[in-house]
Amino acid sequence: MRHVVEKQFIVGTKPLSEPVVLILMSLATEPRHGYALLKDVEKLSDGRVQLSTGTLYGAIRRLLEDEWIERFEQEDTSRDKQAYRLTARGRAQLRSELARLRHLVHAATTRLRLGGA
């Protein structure tokens, strides 16, 4: 009897940039258009990160190409108020990034505790 086993492997991925993490976080709750995204990113980062429109739409284009986000059709969507929402793939990437950050925080906390003793 022949057994066919399909193996799935994940190649180690690099960290996401902070603007990308914040954009994904912002879209994790609901679809948003550009201006709402800018405001939410500012709020999520306590005003520390203020994206320019160039940075925002550069990131949006890459995220669309990678299929981490998608255009979200609303009834009243005009060309200049296009909304975006997170895809399942984007959600998985965000979860993976958060797991990486949690691991990093845990490791750093442990080291600081040991060093501070």
Binding site: E6, F9, P15
Partner: peptide
């Protein structure tokens, strides 16, 4: 081209399955 990953990343780092 840049991906959504950080600048040092390359498209070949995207997950690939055997299939």
């Amino acid at each position: 081209r840049n991906t959504s990953r950080s600048d040092t990343d390359s498209p070949t780092n995207a997950p690939l399955t055997i299939a």
